[in-house]
Amino acid sequence: MTARRIIPCLDVKDGRVVKGVRFEGHVDMGDAAELAARYRDQGADELVFYDITASPEGRTLDYGWVQDIARLLDIPFCVAGGIRTVEQAARCLDHGADKVSINSPALERPEMIREMAARLGRQCVVVGVDSAFQDGEWRVHQYTGDPNARRGAGRLTMDWIVEAQGLGAGEIVLNCIDQDGVRKGYDVGQLAEARQRLTIPLVASGGAGAVEHFREVFVQADVSGALAASVFHSGAIAVPDLKRYLDQQCVEVRI
């Protein structure tokens, strides 16, 4: 089978890695390429680079840094942020990215998922979903990178992930924004529910604060990967320590 993936996510703003609590109030965490190389050497299984300013500002990511990262890494990486057309997604892959993740643009025009899958293959197409619990349901949120632009997307999370899978998504990254940045653990209940509805890989995002949270989400929600940012960037959890712990807990990881 596959090892459970440990995926540091680098939120990028103007070429720097940033992290904030619930996306608000960003703190500079360092240079993107430097951090990427560090995680590669520590045994991260995959990296996600998220240009958090691209989507609300209506611009697309700068393909130059995609190429710089591709030159450096011998592990897979995914890029996200402001990809609005199949052509732009193809250009990310042409510059060396392995996958592209779309979020708000897919909500605006779900057909884009189908077009990307037809052209690029569904395995490259990741749909990122920001989900929060509201009025008794998990609901999709949009433009979460910018507190001023952020809003509800008028969709239920469980319906949207199934629709995205049907349109051709190859993987779902479910970011549970109630948990994001507060380090109280992944939203295992929501992720387990999502896992049951999907046949494609599911990656957990939002809430990691301790090594036990990773074990919990792999064992209880059966997700393929767990994404985290601040706990890795701040040094609170080192990837090699996390993997040793998971291995001891009989969670299969790549060591």
Binding site: T2, I200, P201
Partner: peptide, 14 residues
């Protein structure tokens, strides 16, 4: 073909 605990696509380290 997907099966329980075997998502498709096969994505990850084996």
């Amino acid at each position: 073909l997907p099966a329980p605990s075997r998502p498709s696509p096969h994505m990850g380290w084996s």
